[in-house]
Nucleic acid binder design. Structure first.
Lengths: 152, 152
DNA sequence: TATTGTTATACTCTATAACTATA
DNA sequence: TATAGTTATAGAGTATAACAATA
């Protein structure tokens, strides 16, 4: 029996995550830490509170992730220029280089995978995936609202 | 800037996972445990060793997951009929019902998401995703081989 | 001798709650 | 009074290594 489209989409996410975890095996980096570095690369120096929002985890969790990344030399904590309660977290130069390289490889993988698709199917594929991602986002947001309303 | 196709695929996997975790919030079920139940539903009664292979985790990990699922009444350990070292893990009747319902909802979500795609794009979308999943599977398998060869 | 599962140990990710320092 | 971050505590998922029972 053919797998459902949804099953294939989930398989893709799973394969990607496993592959990334394996790529960083031995470097001390994990999925959660790489995600934080990724967010930092796109957002620039940020407070831990902002990182917590962007990663959708608790502030306490960010403390732990930043502790680990600081120890491994990937990020630095610097004082916030105007708010003495806050710290700014930023990539170290070497981590910034690593992340730029990772972004390049990410774009390359995107191109490789797209090249595996018949040219005549590519435009429809892009449209279809955009529609599905958008629709799923709506569904999840509605489910979250329902849950919040029930909880209150 | 438009997100890459790959980014949208990863977003879909992420949204789905979050949504599932939220759906099971409060029931004691987690992503890892639901995954094990899902595997059990498809494979039928299995030894822990087989479950470890199917879930791609260590046998020790399966011990922990089965302990939790046994306590919550989702699975039962029964003696293996011919191998006294092994146990067979199987769904309880109520968990089997739950999983059948989950599978129905899964198929329904698949249909809902497909309905969000323009009819003329659906065939190309299916072909494209199948091609990408297949290609990515090959890439990951090759990467794993490289790693194993380097390790030896 | 090899395999199945478990005990022992450890680390990461995650959360909630209480607390400190600052705004 | 509210906010940023940390300490304290806890639980789940994961792994490796050593071990018992059985094949």
């Amino acid at each position: 029996m053919e797998p459902l489209l949804l099953d294939r989409l989930l398989l893709i996410g799973d394969l990607f995550q496993r592959d990334m975890a394996r790529a960083f095996d031995g470097t001390g980096l994990t999925t959660a830490r790489v995600h934080l570095l990724w967010v930092l690369q796109h957002a620039g120096p940020s407070t831990q509170r902002d990182l917590a929002r962007l990663c959708d985890v608790t502030p306490r969790n960010i403390t732990g992730l930043v502790d680990g990344l600081e120890e491994s030399g990937h990020v630095r904590r610097t004082p916030h220029p105007t708010d003495r309660r806050a710290v700014l977290v930023e990539l170290t130069p070497s981590a910034a280089t690593t992340m730029a390289e990772m972004q390049r490889e990410h774009a390359e993988l995107n191109a490789t995978l797209l090249a595996a698709v018949a040219p005549k199917d590519r435009a429809a594929l892009e449209r279809g995936i955009a529609a599905i991602a958008s629709h799923l986002e709506t569904l999840v947001a509605e489910a979250a609202e329902d849950r919040d309303r029930t909880a209150s």
